[in-house]
Amino acid sequence: MDSHSTSGGSGFARVVRTPVALIRANRRPYLLLNSLAYGLLTLGLVLGAAFPGLNAALTGGMEESGTTDLVVSLLATPWLFALTITAVNLGRIALASIVLPSLVVPFAGIPVFCYFAVETGITLAPVDHATTMTLIPHSVTMVVEFQAYVLLLLGAYILGRSWIRPSSVGAVTRGRGYLRGLQRLGWLALPALALFVVGAIYEALSLTYLLPLLFT
């Protein structure tokens, strides 16, 4: 039972302490979601490397849509690139793929994210020398960003469980359980947001300054 209470404490200490307490209270699902997220990402990398046609199809679609050209143009301005990456991670993936589906259907964001994780792995697969070298600094970005996704997945899990089984959060009705689950999702979203920002800044700086060194 998740008997965590968000009462007590204030300020920055509470912002740190509450998500940590939630992770500890839900250690098993947290570890399982980590295994799921990083495992599916790795599966995608293996599939993309083993079947280059899959990688070519996804990257080709990005080129046709203009996504690749946009990324290249933004690299000239690292801070703008970091801001754009943060907005994409928050809007298209965190909100649209994980949070919003889970607000409507219990746990719905988890399978949607699973598809995204495999697709991401295929897209970033080391199919040639250039992509292999790019993956070296970008692997840090993937670890950081996927940890942010895991925190949101944990929040989606807690929300779904609270909704279906209100007693898990000490609630009597499903409506109360939903609200308490939503509150816990909000607490976990705070460190996820911080990780998204850190990951975007590192990605912008590594692609702008570190990656060119690997090709010299």
Rank of each mutant, 00 (worst) to 15 (best):
L179W: 10
F116I: 14
G155I: 00
L31N: 09
E203H: 15
Y30P: 04
A25C: 09
L75I: 09
S65V: 14
L214P: 02
A13F: 10
L103F: 10
R176E: 15
N89L: 04
Y209R: 07
G60Y: 01
I98D: 07
A171E: 14
T67E: 14
R14K: 15
P166R: 05
S7R: 15
N89K: 05
A192F: 03
N55Q: 11
N55L: 01
I136G: 02
V172C: 01
A57W: 08
T134R: 12
F81H: 06
S167C: 01
E63P: 02
S139G: 10
L152E: 02
T173P: 13
A200Y: 03
S97L: 12
R176S: 11
V169K: 06
T123I: 07
P29Y: 06
L213A: 08
A130G: 06
L190Y: 02
G155S: 03
L210Y: 08
L135M: 09
L195F: 06
T131F: 01
I136H: 01
L185K: 13
L214R: 04
W163C: 07
Y30K: 01
G60N: 04
D69S: 13
S7E: 15
S162R: 03
Y178R: 10
H138C: 01
G39C: 11
S102D: 06
F196A: 00
Y202V: 09
L31M: 14
G199M: 08
N26L: 11
L135P: 08
L40V: 14
R27V: 15
T173V: 05
A87S: 07
